[in-house]
Simulated assay, not measured.
Amino acid sequence: MTIQKNTQLPVPPHFNPDKVGEVWRVPYQERAAEAEAWAQRHNIKPASSDKTRICLLLIDVQNTFCIPDFELFVGGKSGTGAVEDNQRLCEFIYRNLGVITTIVPTLDTHTATQIFHPIFWVNATGEHPIPAATSITPADIEQGIWQVNPAVADSITNGDYELLKKHAYHYVKQLSQDGKYPLTVWPYHSMLGGIGHALVSSVEEAIFFHCIARQSQTQFEIKGENPLTENYSILRPEVLVDFAQRPLANKNIRLIQQLLEFNAVIIGGQAKSHCVAWTIDDLLTEIKQIDASLAQKVYLLEDCTSPVVVPGVVDYTEQADAAYARFAEAGMHIIKSSYQLSVIS
């Protein structure tokens, strides 16, 4: 971004940082009227007139990850990470309302019978793995410590249990060969149709306010529906082919191409160690195949994301920080939410 013009705006009076950790209904019609008046008052032009086009890519800013006591709250080192991240994120959106062209929120989207949920696996006594505390390796399957639950084959492979076992073993083995995290059995989360699936209310409100003030449609991106692969990244699933080298899932080529057409892409969300890092890594992979200098158009909101930390169980802080150091080395910009977006007018 070329620094030419101070573009920061005040934060609208309706924003209450103390409510960011709560779930509530956004009063759409009231906010829409306020957004139009706000745009007129501050001379905010429609996004269609932007000469410098900026995308804000928000990874999984959903209740399931961001509200305390929800399924996979990302507390980070502080224990309140995602709430603090989203307070800063909302203020960032409001202050830079006039220059953010498009907001792209991703939505992690799951049903119960997926390979990373407890019901998919059983041990010799029929018990399911303990979520968040269990990783499944190829050796675990080979030794019979964990096996695919026969009952879920009816839902996923039309009752073909042997086929489902082949899929599962190949998947776990492929993760190991590709240097990915082992298959983690997660608590049921981001359940389609549930409250956890929804965007955090304060962030949803800020995004909606942007949509009306800039007359720029919010672009929602869904990921994670395939029962046979994790989908940390919005740009591609963890595994692309099955045991017979047939397509299992596809890259999000449309979004990849779209992101690379923006003048700048700003990325925040949850969790820094998983869905955010994997998305950035996949974007960097695509960039290197085209033109490594394109990494310079990517800005990472480091204080609007936290790593997965479960005290006494797992702590991915070091992995997250190492990933961000690698992204910076590749030419991406590590910034704070206080960073002033300034563009050519």
Rank of each mutant, 00 (worst) to 15 (best):
A133S: 13
I207R: 05
N158T: 10
D291R: 13
A35W: 06
P13H: 00
D315M: 04
A168S: 15
Q215N: 14
L192A: 12
L57A: 02
N16A: 04
I119W: 00
I54D: 05
A323E: 07
T134W: 02
R326N: 09
D291S: 13
E36Q: 13
T285S: 12
S273A: 15
N43D: 08
S337R: 02
P227E: 10
D69E: 13
E204F: 10
W278L: 08
A295C: 06
G196H: 03
C55V: 12
A277P: 01
I222P: 09
W24K: 11
N123G: 02
S202N: 12
L341H: 05
Y232S: 11
K45F: 01
V11N: 06
G268Y: 01
Q340L: 06
E318P: 00
A206W: 10
Q8G: 00
V148C: 09
P138K: 03
L72P: 03
H333V: 12
E238K: 03
L57T: 11
T218I: 14
P311E: 07
H167M: 12
E238A: 15
F208K: 11
A213C: 05
N226P: 04
G76L: 03
V298M: 07
K272I: 01
S48H: 01
L255R: 02
L164R: 07
T111F: 05
Q319N: 12
V309G: 09
F92L: 11
G21H: 10
L164W: 12
V343Y: 04
H14D: 12
H167N: 12
P237M: 05
Y339W: 13
D18K: 13
A213L: 05
L300S: 01
L9M: 14
A133I: 05
Q296D: 13
Y299Q: 08
T317L: 08
D160N: 15
E238F: 01
Q40K: 14
G179D: 03
V313Y: 04
L301M: 11
T279L: 03
A133R: 14
V276S: 06
I145M: 10
F262H: 07
Q29V: 10
A153D: 03
T285Y: 10
E205I: 03
V203C: 08
V276T: 06
E127G: 08
L199C: 11
Y28S: 10
V314E: 11
D108K: 09
R236P: 02
Y324H: 14
T285I: 03
D315T: 08
I335L: 02
L235S: 06
T157R: 14
A249Q: 08
A322D: 13
P129L: 10
S337K: 07
Y339C: 09
S190T: 14
Q217I: 14
D69W: 01
F116Y: 13
K251M: 07
A151N: 01
I59D: 08
Q289T: 10
R88E: 04
S233H: 07
P13C: 00
Q174E: 15
P46D: 05
Q296I: 02
I100V: 14
K77M: 04
L260R: 03
